[in-house]
Design a protein around this nucleic acid. Structure first.
Length: 220
DNA sequence: TGCCAGGCCGGGT
DNA sequence: ACCCGGCATGGC
């Protein structure tokens, strides 16, 4: 059973990689920017997040200390294009406060923390849920936590590979228990599921023409 | 135009 | 313990 799951997950990965190519999201990105992006992208199109990130860069605010001292209302206006800006300004401030007060604003120090402990601490920050935290750990910290999101769930459930009721942790474990513990693999795999979801597996209008995963339904 | 976007929280049952 | 509305902007 475990071998079967491993085999299917590996086959999905290979088809996606072959079709879309390496996504390389995180390459040459500042880890702090990745953390900020992970928070700003909650339920939001990445294009809007980039506008907000560019605003922060324009004012040289993509820096823990600067954000720590920036008024939340100012921050809210600056990140406005990403949507939910009032909420996200608070969330960003809460994360930065944690980073400054616990680790002197140094992500390298934060990521030296014992992994599970760090995950729980981050989950304790209001506004940071599992997907956001795992994204920070995986893409900014290069720590082996598989990121689960709406596309992961949607793609697998539409192919009847998982139950509709599956929880985040169960789905994460499915990947982590059946794939080698490999940060690069986790990073690439999640990115590939996202791009595949955008192109072929939108919420109301799935368009499966030419989807590289149609092999999954060949026996149905 | 309506639908969609890499969630999460809090209040009502 | 679930369920669901609210949160907001911009692109196609």
């Amino acid at each position: 059973m475990k071998n079967l799951r491993s085999k299917i997950l590996k086959e999905i990965y290979e088809k996606l990689l072959n079709y879309f190519g390496p996504q390389n999201w995180w390459s040459a990105k500042d880890p702090f920017e990745i953390c900020v992006g992970a928070i700003l992208t909650q339920n939001t199109n990445w294009g809007n997040v980039e506008k907000a990130l560019n605003n922060l860069k324009k004012f040289s605010l993509l820096d823990p200390l600067k954000l720590y001292y920036l008024e939340v209302d100012k921050l809210s206006q600056i990140i406005k294009p990403c949507g939910f800006h009032n909420l996200k300004a608070k969330r960003l401030k809460a994360f930065v406060k944690f980073l400054i007060e616990e680790y002197q604003g140094e992500l390298e120090k934060m990521f030296l923390e014992k992994q599970e402990l760090l995950r729980n601490k981050l989950l304790g920050i209001k506004g940071l849920g599992k997907e956001t935290v795992d994204s920070i750990l995986l893409y900014a910290g290069n720590l082996p936590f598989f990121v689960v999101d709406a596309y992961t769930y949607r793609i697998l459930s539409r192919h009847h590979l998982i139950s509709e009721e599956i929880t985040y942790d169960e789905l994460q474990n499915l990947f982590m228990e059946n794939l080698p513990e490999d940060v690069k693999l986790y990073q690439e795999y999640h990115a590939l599921l996202v791009i595949c979801g955008k192109v072929f597996c939108k919420n109301k209008n799935p368009n499966c023409n030419n989807c590289p995963l149609t092999f999954l339904t060949r026996d149905l």
